[in-house]
């Protein structure tokens, strides 16, 4: 996994509440057996005027001029500002894959759906939680200032605004460590292989019906 330490980048908006995973990456693109290539179809139904199909050359499709992220001023954005309950709906990891493939490395929102939030960390994508008031400030500054950039410092747990003032955010220690070090979580868990085996042994003695059932 890509490590995440500090990010300074252009900010783009997704200014609506309850953005669901079907909106982030529509169902027809989930048929891929790959992990990459979802970026051109991020927010597909909002971004283009036609119905997208897997494998299509998206550069030839009619774009929706009303969709904010299509505006040239947000081109190359790496930080997404969003509203509450971002990523609600399905467990599809294709949602963070699409955001990451598009070029986003961080999202800032007042809240996220649990599964989506969890999936972000597995893909080097940092979901920052700030308050609704703080988001209102950032949205207003971004709309007022073309080329608006933020700096996210994960070690310091701070979002630094262009005027030098910053907002602090909370994050789990384990998730922070994994992101900063770009750790392989599976490798880490397998360091506890003996503890897992001991657990299984003890459990098989008290609840033998749990094991060996499916064959």
């Amino acid at each position: 996994m890509k490590a995440f330490t500090q990010l300074k980048g252009l900010v783009g908006p997704m200014d609506r509440a309850n953005v669901d995973t079907d909106m982030i990456i529509p169902k027809q693109f989930l048929k891929s057996i790959k992990r990459s290539g979802f970026g051109p179809n991020l927010f597909d139904e909002l971004r283009y005027m036609d119905e997208g199909q897997p494998g299509q050359d998206c550069s030839q499709r009619p774009i929706n001029p009303e969709f904010a992220l299509n505006l040239p001023r947000y081109s190359g954005a790496t930080i997404l500002l969003a509203r509450k309950n971002f990523g609600c709906g399905s467990s599809r990891e294709h949602a963070p894959w699409a955001l990451e493939d598009y070029g986003f490395r961080a999202i800032i929102a007042p809240s996220y759906a649990d599964i989506f939030y969890n999936n972000c960390f597995k893909n080097g994508l940092l979901p920052v939680v700030l308050t609704e008031q703080q988001l209102n400030v950032l949205f207003a500054e971004m709309y007022a200032d073309e080329g608006y950039q933020l700096t996210i410092d994960l070690a310091q747990q701070k979002v630094v605004r262009p005027n030098g003032e910053s907002f602090e955010f909370d994050i789990d220690q384990f998730r922070k460590d994994c992101l900063i070090k770009g750790l392989d979580e599976i490798g880490l868990t397998l360091h506890s292989a003996q503890a897992i085996k001991d657990y299984e042994k003890a459990r098989a003695e008290t609840q033998p019906w749990v094991f060996g059932a499916i064959k």
Binding site: R35, S90, S91, E93, P96, I115, I186, T189, L190, I196
Partner: peptide, 13 residues
Amino acid sequence: GIGTSEVEHVLAS
């Protein structure tokens, strides 16, 4: 529910 990275995690561990 879990995401695909966790599907792999559960398969492996």
